[in-house]
Amino acid sequence: MTANKEALLNVEDLTMHFPIYKGLFRKQVGAVHAVDGVSFNVYRGETLGLVGESGCGKSTTGRAILQLYHPTRGAVNFEGRNLVEMKKEELRHMRRKMQMIFQDPYASLNPRMSVGEIIGEPLSVHKIASGKEIQERVAHLLELVRLNPSFASRYPHEFSGGQRQRIGIARAVALQPSFIVCDEPISALDVSIQSQVVNLLQELQDQFNLTYLFIAHDLSMVRHISDRVAVMYLGVVMELADSNALYDNPLHPYTQALLSAVPIPDPVLESKRKRMLLEGDVPSPVNPPSGCRFRTRCPIAQPICAEQRPEFRELKPGHFVACHFAERFM
């Protein structure tokens, strides 16, 4: 699927620091280093999975790409144009092409709006359709996400979590975008409902040649849906590779630990697996470790890891890793 390697999105040194203010005069005393110098491409038609543990900056990355936050530093080139430098009006126009699906299907739909209004709103805001045409489009979109078109007059509270997520998906595809950030779209759903939503996302991708940035912490699901996967830790991308290459031969010690921690629903296999247990917790992003962010928990850390931030280098074709000692896992 990455055969025609055309980069739809190019993220360059993206950095997002949230200032911390203190005292009477609201003096800035520090910053949360949520995302720190992240670079990657997203190719047209692919799904790039973005994984990591809570607080690693994966959601912030997604939001900063869509300019829901104004990045501290860096560039986000979408179809060759830098979104960070765009004027508001221009950016608003671009939003037609880039949409988002949110994690919480309860908080992301306005309870006072009917489903028809929720899905139809982007169409009228962007002056794509009006009046009766909106209704027709809404009915069509509801069918597309396998909901009854007559639901348009109902309100969000009448629906289950999975159905609400479908409404959120219908809203996101209403403008026929080319790029969608899916921010943990299935984390809040029951197991049997998750696969329904994932299958729907994949069908829509095939039908409309959509490009996804799929943010999640469920590594098994990310492997299932992604062509390529990026692993984040404390605001930095540690490893990025084709999905099979990353899961079969991870080159970063953090990726290795993360993968070994994921349980597999097979008791025979589970009894034979070796776990690589990490000590302690993720350090605070307010004061991240010097050099390599992972060095405080890394089983193979050396003095150089504290001094020098490892370069994010392409060790094998298409396989990027930020570790001084990744060669030993080749």
Binding site: V191, S195, V198, M221, R223, I264
Partner: peptide
């Protein structure tokens, strides 16, 4: 059976469509 088939496994390559349990609990 439905539950076991609807979850992807870490040791499974991507591509195969997940079978889902239709409807709601």
């Amino acid at each position: 059976l439905g539950l076991l088939n609807s979850i992807p496994r870490l040791d499974q390559k991507e591509g195969k469509k997940l079978s889902s349990i239709e409807g709601l609990p």
